[in-house]
């Protein structure tokens, strides 16, 4: 039996008409391709990261997958449903979390929003109670249920939002920047919860993020989008290779010294006693640190992961080179 992809995009496009004022009563119309012929499939139970710089078309894609926006072209199916045509039917089967805004009722206690979801989605009582208990326990919401949403901290609100998106047992969960603005502990809680959700319930998860760690810790597959086009689709390790990205070792020396000289790493910046060294992301930092520690008076060090922007920038440069040659 061959199961069709659960989420399916075939040459999906979204073109916006942008009108710009160019003078008194004069307007210039310009078309912006926010999503430019994107095709991919996501199998049931997959957990996929969808990344790219600001304005790349991530949110537009999510909005088309939820039925908020209607595609300008191409074919799009989620669970066999065309989102823009059967928006309310699809709504029963998907959960959506927008990192930057809440789906909860702002002025009312958290529990009121949940009670309303219960009725609005027609969730069977036993199922609702079970799901709510589970979310309250794992997301530590117990003390927050009677607090009006507007009084919650960003991290608390995010956990509240995630719970709200899951009460009706959605088959797919879309998360648009779920960890944006969260502190380290909140981020860890959210990630842990999502991992368990995916492992235990087999919920398909598609998340957009700026945080490469979200992807590293959660997703076996990552898609990179930029300027509305799919640049990369595969495992995260492949992304590092594709971008041939580098990690950075920041070394604090006892005093100002000339740039450190070690094989497999090059100094990219020196600022007083602090030096920045770039080394391939695929290499371990341990031998490098050992060598520097042996040869230089090192006080402190830290390793910085490559950020998405840097990786994508590199991918671009390489594509341009290929095109030129």
């Amino acid at each position: 039996m061959t199961e069709q992809a659960f989420i399916e995009l075939d040459r999906v496009e979204k073109v916006f008409d942008v009108r710009k004022k160019t003078g008194f009563m004069k307007r210039e119309r310009r078309q912006v391709r926010a999503v430019d012929s994107i095709s991919f499939g996501v199998a049931r139970g997959e957990m996929v990261g969808y990344i790219g710089p600001n304005g790349a078309g991530k949110s537009t894609t999510i909005k088309m997958l939820t039925g908020i926006l209607t595609p300008s072209g191409g074919r799009l199916r989620v669970a066999g449903i065309d989102p823009s045509r059967e928006r309310t039917r699809l709504a029963h089967r998907i959960g959506v979390v927008f990192g930057q805004r809440t789906t909860l009722w702002w002025d009312l206690p958290l529990i009121d929003s949940y009670k309303l979801m219960h009725r609005m989605y027609r969730i069977p009582d036993a199922r609702y109670a079970e799901n709510l208990d589970r979310c309250v326990e794992l997301l530590e919401l117990g003390a927050l249920l009677d607090v009006p949403v507007r009084q919650l901290s960003l991290g608390q609100r995010m956990r509240g939002d995630i719970a709200a998106a899951l009460l009706h047992d959605p088959e797919v969960l879309y998360l648009d920047e779920p960890t944006i603005g969260l502190d380290v502990i909140s981020k860890a809680k959210v990630r842990e919860f999502l991992r368990e959700l995916n492992a235990e319930r087999g919920t398909t998860v598609l998340l957009t993020t700026h945080d490469l760690q979200d992807i590293e810790q959660l997703c076996s597959r990552v898609m990179v989008i930029d300027h509305g086009r799919l640049m990369y689709d595969g495992p995260l390790t492949g992304l590092h290779e594709a971008g041939e990205s580098e990690r950075t070792l920041v070394v604090d020396l006892e005093r100002e010294l000339p740039p450190i000289e070690v094989p497999d790493a090059r100094v990219v910046k020196v600022e007083g006693p602090r030096q920045w060294l770039a080394f391939p992301a695929s290499e371990s930092a341990a031998p490098l640190v050992a060598r520097i520690a042996a040869e230089y008076p090192m006080v402190d060090l830290s390793v910085r992961e490559p950020d998405i922007e840097a990786v994508i920038a590199k991918m671009y440069a390489e594509q341009a080179e290929k095109a030129a040659s």
Binding site: K63, T66, G67, I68, R87, T88, R89, A91, H92, I94, V96, F98, Q100, R101, T102, T103, M120, Y121
Partner: peptide, 10 residues
């Protein structure tokens, strides 16, 4: 942007 959240409810 909160209008979007109305569109994802059934």
């Amino acid at each position: 942007g909160s209008f979007d959240t109305l569109l994802v409810r059934p």
